[in-house]
């Protein structure tokens, strides 16, 4: 028998997680029920987060976006403001699972399950997201990259919860999320690539690339900003950024492609993601329209 506790407030939830050893937070359930069914986990107590309305919703204050941990992926996917200001985030939400899964799954659940191929971390990483963590000893805020410890593992202490994700979305920033899959829908990323580009006029001021599925954790590729900044769009340098990203990757070989293959795909998708992000930044892309998932569109001029 698996016991279920239903807290009405965040404080209650934290108390339950602290008091009951082995208690697992239950958000949308798409991972928790699956893991229980397949025997990957065997919790004795579930703490249902679905009544914590304070953890649900998208808020935009100036350039700062805040998304509650219990916000559904479907809500993120369909938020027009997010699509306009941080396109990569809903673009990633849009390709996660099916509509049904997106209705159920939450942002917090997607981050805390810490699957290397998860869709939501790369776009949030290129937006410089931080996570608000609530715990028995109060709250703390960490960069999103610091949340991930390895496949299926986070740096959360026992009893801690992710409460919200925050990131800046200035109007001179464009972002994009692309992925390689076997099927064109209902698939996990074999490679996930997010890019953001900030501009001043047509000049790039900074650029960031983050990758999923090619390392034990999602990560930001170092050095891309130095390579791309201070100049207008340069396809050569975007290609170089792709090679840098491939070199920074350490994928495994499995039924969904070899390590070498995944590195090739990184090298191919990074310039495309940068190009689309750049176009979005300079206003050269229809606002809110998502890219084809592999980003195969004509090069920006």
């Amino acid at each position: 028998m698996v016991e279920v506790l239903i807290p009405g407030t965040l404080a209650e939830a934290l108390g339950m997680l602290a008091d009951r050893e082995g208690a697992v937070p239950l958000a949308g359930g798409t991972d928790v029920l699956l893991d229980m069914r397949t025997g990957r986990s065997d919790p004795t107590v579930l703490v249902d987060m679905s009544r914590l309305d304070g953890l649900r919703g998208v808020g935009i204050d100036g350039d700062l976006v805040t998304i509650g941990a219990m916000t559904s992926i479907r809500t993120i996917e369909r938020d027009a403001e997010l699509a306009a200001r941080s396109t990569a985030v809903p673009e990633a939400a849009h390709v996660l699972g099916s509509v049904q899964i997106r209705v159920m799954a939450t942002l917090g659940g997607n981050l805390c399950h810490a699957t290397p191929s998860a869709e939501m971390p790369p776009p949030l990483l290129v937006h410089g997201a931080e996570v608000d963590i609530a715990g028995p000893d109060g709250g703390r805020t960490v960069p999103l990259a610091d949340l991930f410890a390895g496949p299926g593992a986070t740096t959360l202490d026992p009893g801690e919860l992710v409460a919200a994700v925050r990131y800046p979305a200035p109007s001179n920033l464009g972002s994009c999320y692309l992925r390689q899959t076997v099927r064109w829908s209902m698939d996990l990323a074999g490679v996930g690539v997010a890019a953001s580009v900030a501009v001043d006029g047509d000049r790039i001021t900074t650029a960031t690339v983050a990758l999923g599925a090619v390392a034990p954790t999602p990560f930001v590729v170092g050095g891309v900003a130095d390579l791309m900044a201070d100049d207008p769009w340069d396809p050569e340098r975007a290609g170089e950024a792709g090679r840098m990203a491939a070199a920074a990757s350490s994928p495994i070989s499995d039924a969904r492609g070899s390590a070498d293959y995944r590195c090739s795909v990184v090298a191919a998708l990074v310039p495309r993601a940068l190009g689309i992000a750049y176009r979005r930044a300079i206003g050269g892309w229809p606002v809110g329209r998502f890219s084809p998932t592999n980003g195969l569109v004509e090069e920006p001029a």
Partner: peptide, 11 residues
């Protein structure tokens, strides 16, 4: 078909 020369995906 459309072949993605970078990823090998076939649409």
């Amino acid at each position: 078909v459309e072949v993605d020369p970078g990823t090998g995906q076939v649409k």
